[in-house]
Amino acid sequence: MASTDVIGAAQAQKKQGKGMSSKKKSRGPWLERYSALILAVVLLGAWQVLVPWSGLSEFVLPTPLAIAKRIVNELPLLASHAYVTLFEVVAGFAMGVLVGIPLALAIFYSRAFERAIYPILVALQTVPKVALAPLLVLYLGYGWAPKITLAFLISFFPIVISTVVGLQSLDKNLVNLVRSMGASEWQTFFKVRLPAALPNIFGGFKVAVSLAVIGAVIGEYVAAERGLGYLQLQANSLFDTTLNFATVVTISGLGVMLYFIIDTIEARVTYKRDAAK
């Protein structure tokens, strides 16, 4: 009884929602779709206008247009450093996946392993990874190795946790269902456990990849000869605030790009529960 009532209510709500949006058809959906863009433009516009008006020099705060112009002019330079950082991030994140997923599976399938490893994992997680950067440089030198290691260390924890949670939150009745059809544990995993856990796993990937960018850049701050973190320090020492901002924008761009790549892969391999049509 309850279930159809709920469905009915949800449908009614949906219709109501539709009705409301069609009432103010002229503004509603348009404003909704572009609200983020409009807000960004308004904020950037205010920044653009307020900087000259307040008399701040461009050494302190360059205008958005100046930063944009600089990005365009320095594209080859930015790209050559971004390339290095991108490699470190992707390598560190990939290691996080390659170590994190098997670890999560071991935790999920073995009670004893879970008991043994969980306290260690949590203890490790309380260590601020960033504080390890100088040590990693000491051990691994000035090349890409300490950056990749830092990106890996910082990204693998959310991958492990989200995968374990995704696997554990499965409705036990679904397991009974496929077992009643004669499924082996292998089949149960690939037909039910994994697909059901994918939204969680991808959520972990998205957090992890953003953290991996932080890990790589921090690694570059400590000691590097290339990479966006290194470029930013250089700009700093030259009091080139505009280039400094241009680097920040590039770093964010890197993070956003990786996020959307994962989001696109997720959309291809999963079906969203509520995405009717």
Partner: peptide, 24 residues
């Protein structure tokens, strides 16, 4: 077996849900 809740896999189409035991 038919359980109290339908236990359909939301990421599979209706047809693929019905064919699940055949796959298994």
């Amino acid at each position: 077996v038919v359980f109290q809740s339908d236990l359909l896999l939301y990421w599979r189409s209706v047809l693929d849900n019905i064919l699940l035991p055949i796959e298994i």
